[in-house]
Every structure is written in C-alpha cells, then in structure tokens.
Design a protein around this nucleic acid. Structure first.
Length: 943
RNA sequence: GCUGAAGUGGUGGAAUUGGUAGACACGUUGGACUUAAAAUCCAAUGUCCAUUAGGACGUACGGGUUCAAGUCCCGUCUUCAGUACCA
C-alpha cells in the first residue's frame, strides 16, 4: 500500500465535516480554550500559500489543546464588508453581495482542503444582516453612553441627563468636546430639545461633529489615521487631503489611559505593545495660559517642560490656529495671509517629506509672560500642528531643537536657562543632570523640582495646571461607501436619533449604481429612501420626519473596522441560539475572552486598538465580563514570493537578455510568471510564448541565452497577482497533499518571521510523510504489532514527546518538524514495529499532519477520531543516556569524558562529579574549588 | 532622527540557564538500482592546509569578561519593521 495522500485527505475531511468532529460545546467538564485567527477578507484572487500560515499555526495549537484535554473553541468566518468588492461593483455593476458570496465559496473550498479543525457551525460574516444587526446595536450603545472620568468608566447617558437636570454641567467630569459652555440646572431645563441634544452630542461616546478629516478624493471617502500610510491611502496609494466635514466619530480618546494601562495585563509582543503605546502617545506636562497684549483672548499651550518657562523667547501658533487672523497687526497681515495660503496648499505628504525647511511669519502681536510679564512675540509656523495639543507652543529655543532652529533662522533671542550648558551649536534637550538658572524662583532646581514648582505657581495665578496629553485622536467612523453597515440613525431637525432596537437590522438598500450621487452624496443617497424605510421596517414615522429637509436616514456607512471589533464574541454563541442576543450571558461567561489570537502585525494600531476600545465599553455597560479581548497574541510573519524577471532591451522591445549578460546594457526588468521558471532559474521560453495571457507579448521575442539557457533574475517580494509570483495552495495540495503543505509552511522558519516561499524545498517534508507511512505500512498492509518496545524505541519516543510539547508551547513549530524527521529516521533504523511506540507517535504528529495521522490511527483499529486521543505522557526515565559521553573541560585545556544520564538531578550529577574529582585533580595536579553542573549536558570544574 | 527586531555554510534555518556551532531540510557532488528517466537508497558537503593521520581558522566588525562566548558587556557597521516636526 502506498501513501495515497489525495484519497486519504479527502476521506478524512469528509469524515470531520459529517461527524462534526470539531464542533465546540458551551457545556463541558473540561477547561475551556479559545483559539482565534484574524478572519479573512474574501478577496477575488483567492488564497495563496502565504495566507494559511497563521491558520496552520493556530490549528496545530488548537488540535494540541484538544489532545491536552481542553474544550477548544476554534471558529472561522469572514470580514466580508470592504472596498474591493465595492470597487468591483462600480466597474461591473455586480452587486457586492454576489461577488462576496462567490469569493467566500472559493475561500471555503480552499480552506477545507487544508484540513483545518474549524467549528464552521459558528461561522460569522460581517456583511450578513443577522450579524450587523448587532454591530448597529453596539453603535447605539456607544451613542447612549458618556465617559465619567470620576468613576473612570462609561455610563448610561441617562445618568448624565439627570445630573444636568439637577446640577447643570459644572460638576461633571467627563470625556467630552472642549468647547462646552458651562450651564446650570435651570438653564439646562430651559434649553430647547435641539439645544439639549446638541449639548449631549458633545458627551456621547459616538458623536456627530464637524471635524477636519482625511479625505481621499480618488476613493471618494474619508479615512481613519491608521488607514493612511506615508500620507497616501493604505488601499490604492491615493493622495489624501484635509477637509472639514460632518462625520460620526468614536470618542476613543476617553479610553486612552485605560488602553495604555491594559497593555500591562496582556501577553503580547513588546514591539506590538510599543506600537500601541506610541500611537496613544501619552505625555505628561502642563498647560500654560498666556495673555495676549491688547486683547481679552488667551492662548493655551501644552508643554512637557514647564521647568523651562523662563527660557521662553517667543510663541508659535499653527497657521490654522483660530486666533491668528484676529491678533495679526495690519502691518503683518499681508505676510501672514500669504503664509497661511501657502501652507494650506501643501499637502500632508509634502509637509512630511520636507521637515527641514524652516518657515514662519511674525504676527506682530505679543503675549505676556505669566511670571516676568515681559512681552513675547507671537509667530506662526507650520512646524506646529493644529491637531496636537492646543495648536500652539511656548518656544524655548535653548531647550528644544525645533525652537532653536526657528530662533536661529529668524534671529530671535536664545536665552540660556541651563547652568553650564553649551547652547552655541544646538539646544540642550536633555532634562537630566542640569540645573535651572536665570529663572527667578527656579534657580538651582532640577527638572523635577522646578516643574512641580512652576505648576504650583501657575495654579496660584490661575494661568495653568499639570496636564497629561495624548496623541490618540478620536476615530472618524463614517465612510461614504455602499458596502458597509448602515447606521441605525435617522434625523429630526438635523439632530440624530437612534432607531429603536426592535427594528434592527437596518438592511442595506438596493441601489442601481454604487458610485456617489451626482450631488456628491454617498451611494446610499441613490436609494429610494422612503421605500428603504418601509422595507427595512425601520419605522421612521411620518410625523417624526415631517420637519426633516434632506434625508431621514443616515446615508454614510460604517468603516471596515466596525464589524471586526466584536466578532470574537459572536463566535461564543452557538449559531442555533443567536437570535435576540449578540451572544448569551452564559456563553460570554463561559468563553470569557480569546486565549490565543494569531494574525498579522499590520493591525497593531487599527483593529487591535479599536477592539480593545469596544470591549472596554461593553464591559462598562455590563454586556461582557472582560476588560481585554485577546489574552495572548502572536503576529505571524509573511510568506513572500520569489519573483522572476526577464530583461528587455530598452531600445528593442523584442530583445531579452539572460540575467548574466545585462551588466553593461540598458535593460528593463519585466515580471514573468514563476511557473515558467525551474529551480535553476532557467526560463521555459516555449511555455512563456504559448501562455494564454502573455503569449502574444513574447511571440516574436528573441532571447539571448547564456550557456545555452535563459536565466531569469530573482527577487523576493510580497506575493501578489501583479507580480506573477503567487503560488496557489490548490496545486501544492494536489501535488504533495495538505499534510505536506502544513508541515512545510511550519518548517519554513519561525512563525513570526518574514520568509520567502520556495516550492522546491517541499520534497523534504513530503519524503518525511512517505517514510512515516512506511513505518506503519508495507506492501502487505499494516506492519504494526504488539512487539515489546526496545530501550532505544522508548528513548526515541520520549525524547520526541518532550521536544514536541516544548516546541508547541513555545510556538516553535519549525523545530518540531525536524524532531519528527529525526524520530522517524531513528525508528526506521531501529526497525520498530511496536504499537506502544507508534500509536503515541501518531498523536504527536496529528496536530501537524492530521490526515495521515487520522488514517493510520484508523488502520490501527480505532473507531474514534485521533483528536479525542490524549497527548502522550512524558517519562524521563527512558532518556537515560548510556552511550553518549560528556566532555569535561578543565581550565580550557584538558578534557575528560563522563557518562551521565539525561534526566539526572543536579544533586546526583554533583555527587558523580565529586567522585571523579580526585582523578581529575591528580591528572591536573590541582584541586578544583568549584564544580558547576548542568543536567544532561557538560560538567564544568573550575580550578 | 526615535523605537523595536535582527546579522550563523551555496540556501531556509538549529543550538534551555554561557558548555563539543552548523541539528533538520533544500541544493550540489559521487555511488547503487534501471535499457533510460523518474522514484528510492547510500556516501560526502563551513573555509583553508595536508596523500593520509591531523592541523589552523570560523556565528557582521573591533575590543572586553570567563576555565569556556553565536549567547553576557562596551564600541562600530549593516539590514528589516514601525513611527515621524507630538511641543
């Protein structure tokens, strides 16, 4: 019997599906364990071999945990709202739901053939109305919440209203907009309904506000900060401009401190935590208020160095600062306006690319120093950002390099307030080991003491206080797109109202075209809104909408991260019981949170931050029991493709030079499909010329060969359709089988690392599987029997158990593949046929190569799936080393060998070594003073 | 610039707490089997010197600690990732 992997794999995939082998139960005596993958966006291109890497790792872990006696939840689903389906729809008119459905079918087929142990009965799709009903519901919870800084949690908006009714807003300590005027209870009660709603909106955790947003004209939508990379859109690389628009925002800034603190409680990599810390960007300092000479207006600044306040020699405002136009003197007006116009024209990207050019203009106005009362010139400059802090800085040129450069450039005074510091070349930016000087009451103090004192003095004057600032901005939540969750919102007199929960979900309406309307409204503006209201039972009753002017319903949709911010809770509920709840209390209580989450690091400041935010909100409002969604998180690296190039002569498009001949020539590298290149980088010219897609381009091409062949150039790049370097898992499964694919993806290297794919190498693991098969089966069938295991057999087995267990728990899946290979080689050499060795070996291998393990397990006479088998117990007594000799190095010169058992205790080794001491001492002529022992390893004796 | 990770054969990569560097695999070379190819099996494979025995050098580079350093410390260089006028 030969190893017929195609039949075996199909057989067991069918078996697992029909038997529902991996269906998780919400009731069990076993401890729970929740293993989750970041669910995929089902793109039209299907899976390439890079995609399943993380899924294979999590599947191995999930299967391992089942063997270890855990009740494992290992679900999968689809993040099925998104831009590509919509753009495809715009081009072809195909409904995104249709293409999404097709793509999901492909994904499911491809995932199934790899043999994952997913519980598909709990599948979720974010674009499914039954799912996004609850995304809409969570949005409503955010709307109905405010953040109480005193209790440090979100509360029902009703508690805020009753506070307003009884005591106004002066005692309310909330996370809110900063332009709220104080009012008394009496004033509140006199407000009109619209005025009250307007005020409440400034407190709600999701709110409608006119904000400067990142507008991407090419995509026709706004983007969140994390969707912009290097000043262009993450998807498509289109330019992004700043624009004022009325948009829904999420008050994530309310949770800045808790998001920061929570990082201490979770098991994530340091680099990932660091990214989130930087993104949150906490800085501790003070706010200082400066009076403007000749005006009642005040300028607030934020500084991390209140101790340097006597070093202030000017102030700089962002060009967009609201006071600029007011305080500019007539003489400076022209220059200031010209400067503002110039900076406004510069895109974010230009501004970022060019950080060295110093520019700015004097406004002509002066502020008053809070202590010295000296006049301070007020400048504007684009190195001050309107979006951070207050959009204004107190400039201390002796202590800050940017202020220093600015002062030098415009010839502004640079007073030195540091004792003994040399500021002739650059600012003295360090706050350690220096004393303050020329600073009145601060002289002689260090940074810490002086800062405290300044804040104290400022508070006395009413011109400042200690303050903590965060870089984290509220997240824009509206998108001008079709293929996303509709908001459960309608408007009365321009004020947003939530649609009653009973009428959810608000289902996406049908539209004829998926483009924005001619009036520039989002695509939903094309829908027949009145029909939509009735169809979706949203019941925006006529009297409620009588006064509305444009649309009774919100026309924007939610961003991609809405649905992915809570999906891990949806899996907890059995699909059969999902009606009426996003997940039942029992289910939430039982599964708590995700024990192990595997996914890419590109979500560090997006999905992984937003999910944490929503979970904290849901916890505060009593809907879930956990503060953090993902206890342990691992970022899998990417599998890269190896692209192949041919080199076209720049002057002759039909002439191509082999890779070794291009040195002195002007050539253009062109990607060619990797399937026409063999392992020695030789091009199959005939294949290329007859290719269905490209044959035409190369029909008349002349290839200049070297050594009789055309050699292509190689480069390692991200796998992508456009680079023709994609390797499809389908062909790998067909040629080598899913077990080979799974083993090879793990064998390729450490999980977290980026590594290139190379199909040629798969023969190594494939040969291993063939050898494994032969260990159990020969031409006459099964050769396993009840033979007594030898000492060597047992040693091999237990060595393997120990190593594999350690590897899986450390997520070093690559080395356990090697361990299996060694084990199988050893057992083959030992001619092992003993069932008591070969059975547990299968259990060890089954998380990695489940199909072959299941088949052999079955042939060994088991009726139950191997996934129900217990992980074999490790017994150290079998690892006694009898043949291996350990050298003893003595003063680095002499060597002795000592035979020691691997499992010997430290004490025993010490005793053994002591017994040998005399001999060693005699040989060397000295008496050892100290003995260092390492169990199972080398023994050190220090003379 | 800042932060984080890393640098080991022709290649991917192994190497608990410092303890025989290069496991395992790919590739390459030679051999067996075969009419031949594929498949399979066996052997060799860090570099240099030597016919052999053996020796020298070797974990980016330069120092240091130690009986012993890929691993620890100091300095330098390079690569990758994230972030970027954050006051």
């Amino acid at each position: 019997m030969t190893y017929n992997f195609n039949d075996i794999e199909k057989k067991w995939q069918n078996y697992w599906a029909t038997q529902q082998t991996f269906k998780a139960s919400n009731q069990s005596d076993k401890p729970k364990y929740y293993v989750l993958d970041m669910f995929p966006y089902p793109s039209g291109a299907g899976l390439h071999v890079g995609h399943p890497l993380g899924y294979i790792a999590s599947d191995i872990y999930a299967r391992y945990k089942r063997h270890k006696g855990f009740n494992v939840l290992h679900p999968q689903g689809y993040d099925s709202f998104g831009l590509p389906a919509e753009q495809y729809a715009i081009q072809t008119g195909q409904h995104p739901a249709v293409t999404t459905e097709t793509n999901i079918t492909t994904y499911r087929r491809q995932l199934d053939q790899i043999g994952f142990s997913f519980d598909w009965s709990r599948e979720v799709r974010t674009s499914n109305p039954e799912y996004y009903k609850w995304t809409q519901w969570i949005f409503i919870q955010l709307f109905e919440s405010w953040y109480n800084n005193d209790t440090n949690k979100a509360e029902d908006i009703k508690t805020l209203i009753s506070k307003f009714e009884t005591e106004g807003n002066t005692n309310v300590n909330a996370a809110c907009d900063d332009d709220i005027a104080p009012f008394t209870a009496a004033e509140w009660n006199k407000f009109s309904s619209e005025e009250q709603q307007d005020v409440l909106l400034k407190y709600r955790l999701t709110y409608l506000a006119e904000t400067e947003v990142n507008w991407c004209p090419a995509l026709g939508t706004v983007l969140a900060n994390d969707e912009i990379v290097n000043g262009v859109s993450e998807r498509g690389g289109h330019p992004v401009v700043r624009k004022k628009m009325t948009q829904w925002s999420m008050r994530i800034s309310a949770y800045a401190e808790r998001l920061l603190q929570g990082l201490e409680t979770i098991d994530w990599t340091d680099s990932l935590k660091e990214s989130q810390r930087n993104w949150i960007g906490k800085s501790v300092g003070a706010s200082v208020t400066f009076k403007v000479n000749g005006y009642d207006d005040l300028i607030d600044v934020f500084t991390t160095r209140p101790d340097t306040i006597f070093g202030v020699s000017f102030m700089t405002l962002a060009p967009e600062h609201e006071l600029v136009s007011k305080i500019t003197t007539p003489e400076q007006k022209e220059a200031v306006e010209a400067y503002i116009e110039k900076t406004a024209k510069r895109s974010e990207r230009d501004r970022m690319a060019d950080v060295k050019t110093i520019s700015g203009v004097f406004t002509g106005a002066y502020a008053e120093h809070p202590f010295s009362k000296e006049p301070i010139p007020i400048w504007i400059g684009d190195y001050v950002l309107a979006s951070y802090g207050t959009g204004a800085v107190m400039a201390v040129p002796c202590g800050d390099q940017r202020d220093y450069d600015f002062a030098k450039h415009f010839d502004i005074a640079i007073p030195n307030i540091f004792e003994g510091a040399d500021i002739s070349k650059e600012a003295y930016a360090s706050k350690d080991n220096v004393k303050i000087a020329n600073s009145d009451f601060l002289d002689g103090m260090n940074y810490k003491k002086a800062s405290k004192r300044v804040i104290f003095e400022l508070e006395k004057l009413g011109q400042g206080e200690g303050k903590t600032n965060y870089r984290l901005r509220d997240a824009v939540f509206s998108r001008q797109r079709y293929w996303g969750e509709p908001f459960p919102v309608y408007y009365v007199n321009g004020m947003p109202q939530m649609i009653d929960q009973a009428h959810l979900p608000i289902v996406l309406p049908e539209v004829e075209k998926y483009l924005p309307t001619e009036e520039g409204e989002p695509p939903l503006g094309r829908a027949d809104v009145w029909a939509w209201c009735t169809e979706t039972n949203s019941v925006v009753s006529n009297d409620k909408i009588n006064n509305t002017t444009i649309h009774p319903l919100e026309l924007n949709t939610m961003p991609g991260w809405a649905g992915s911010s809570w999906y891990f809770f949806r899996y907890m509920e059995d699909a059969a019981n999902r009606d009426g709840v996003f997940a039942s209390e029992d289910a939430l209580k039982y599964w708590e949170n995700v024990d192990l989450y595997i996914g890419g690091s590109e979500h560090a400041t997006g999905h992984l931050l937003y999910s944490r935010f929503w979970v904290k909100l849901l916890k505060d409002r009593g809907f879930v029991n956990v503060e953090e969604p993902f206890k342990k998180l691992i970022n899998q690296g990417m599998i890269l493709g190896t692209s192949a190039f041919v080199y076209r002569d720049e002057n002759n498009p039909n002439l191509y030079y082999s890779q070794g001949l291009i040195e002195d020539k002007n050539v253009l590298p062109i990607h060619v499909k990797v399937q026409y290149v063999n392992a020695s980088d030789e091009l199959d010219i005939e294949g290329l010329k007859t290719d269905g897609e490209f044959g035409e381009d190369f029909k008349d091409a002349e290839f200049i060969l070297e050594d009789g062949v055309y050699k292509v150039g190689r480069d390692v790049e991200k796998m992508s359709k456009s680079k023709y370097n994609v390797v499809n898992p389908d062909s790998i499964c067909a040629d080598y089988g899913a077990d080979s694919l799974r083993l090879y993806e793990m064998f390729l290297g450490p999980l977290e690392q980026y590594k290139p794919w190379n199909t040629a190498g798969i023969t190594g693991v494939h040969n291993f599987l063939k050898k494994l098969w032969k260990l159990y089966v020969n031409d006459n069938g099964l050769k396993v029997n009840d033979a007594e295991p030898t000492k060597d057999n047992l040693k091999t087995l237990h060595k393997t158990i120990k190593k594999v267990q350690e590897d899986i728990e450390n997520f070093s899946f690559n080395t356990s593949v090697s361990t299996f290979m060694i084990a199988v080689n050893e057992l083959s050499a030992q001619k092992c046929t003993s069932k008591s060795i070969l059975e547990p070996l299968l259990v060890l291998i089954s998380p990695y190569a489940p199909h072959i393990a299941e088949e052999l397990w079955n042939q060994l006479g088991h009726n139950e799936s191997i996934s129900t088998a217990a992980f074999p117990e490790f017994d150290a007594s079998h690892l006694v080393e009898s043949s291996k000799k350990y050298p003893i190095s003595f003063n680095g010169k002499m060597r002795f060998t000592l035979e020691l058992p691997m499992d010997m205790s430290k004490d025993d080794i010490e005793k053994t070594v002591m017994a040998h001491e005399k001999t060693i001492a005699q040989l060397d002529g000295r008496t050892p003073k100290k003995v260092i022992v390492v169990p199972g390893k080398i023994v050190n004796i220090v003379g």
